[in-house]
Lab assay of single mutants.
Amino acid sequence: NSASGPLPDGWEQAMTQDGEIYYINHKNKTTSWLDPRLDPRFAMNQR
């Protein structure tokens, strides 16, 4: 992992069949290639 600590509440790390890691936001029912622990847009929304 490139980030430390647990994923934010509602997020899950998953892997594609090709072995690529992505992240699932169960609250918004969206997915992201960016780790939410590193995404400044997500961090701003949590303050």
Rank of each mutant, 00 (worst) to 15 (best):
A3L: 09
D18S: 12
D39C: 15
T30A: 12
Y23I: 00
H26V: 07
P40T: 15
E20A: 05
Y22I: 00
L7G: 05
R41P: 15
I24S: 02
R41E: 14
W33Q: 01
T16S: 10
K29N: 14
E12N: 06
L38M: 12
Q46G: 12
S4Q: 11
S2F: 12
P6K: 13
I24G: 00
Y23L: 00
G5W: 06
K27I: 05
W11F: 03
A14C: 10
N25L: 02
D39M: 15
Q17C: 12
S2C: 14
S32I: 01
N1A: 02
L34D: 04
D35N: 11
R37L: 03
E12I: 02
N45F: 09
N45R: 06
T16N: 11
G10I: 03
D9A: 08
A43K: 12
R41F: 15
S32M: 04
E20Y: 03
N1V: 09
D9H: 08
Y22A: 01
P40K: 13
D9T: 09
R41Q: 15
Q46D: 15
P36S: 00
P8S: 08
Q17H: 12
K27A: 11
G10C: 06
Q13F: 04
N28E: 09
D9F: 08
S32H: 03
S4W: 06
N25Q: 03
A14I: 04
D18Y: 08
R47H: 07
R37N: 03
I21Y: 08
M44Y: 09
D18A: 12
N25W: 04
E20N: 07
D18W: 03
I21F: 06
R37A: 04
A43Q: 11
D9R: 06
N25F: 02
P36Y: 00
P40D: 15
S2H: 13
P40M: 14
Y22T: 01
A43H: 10
T31K: 01
K27F: 06
P40G: 14
A14H: 08
I24L: 10
Y23W: 08
R37K: 05
S2P: 04
N28F: 15
T31V: 01
W33L: 03
S32C: 05
Y23R: 00
T31Y: 01
T30S: 06
E20M: 05
G5L: 09
D35R: 09
N45S: 08
N1R: 05
P36T: 00
N28K: 10
K27L: 10
T16P: 00
A43E: 14
T30C: 15
I24P: 00
H26I: 07
A43C: 11
K29H: 12
Y22V: 01
M15L: 13
D35H: 06
L34C: 10
N25R: 01
N1W: 02
R47G: 13
N28A: 14
R47T: 10
T16V: 02
M15Q: 14
K29W: 04
L7M: 14
T31A: 06
L34R: 10
P8A: 06
F42P: 14
D35T: 03
S32R: 01
K27T: 09
Q17G: 12
L7V: 07
T16G: 03
D35Q: 04
T16W: 02
I21V: 13
K27S: 10
L38A: 14
E20G: 03
P36C: 00
H26L: 10
W33V: 03
R37Y: 02
P40W: 15
R47L: 07
D35M: 04
S2T: 11
E12R: 06
N45T: 08
S2G: 08
K29R: 14
P6S: 13
M15C: 14
W33E: 00
D35Y: 04
T31G: 01
S32K: 01
T31N: 02
D35E: 04
L7K: 04
Y22E: 02
L34N: 08
M44L: 10
L34G: 07
G5Q: 05
I21H: 09
Q17I: 11
S4A: 05
M44N: 13
H26Q: 11
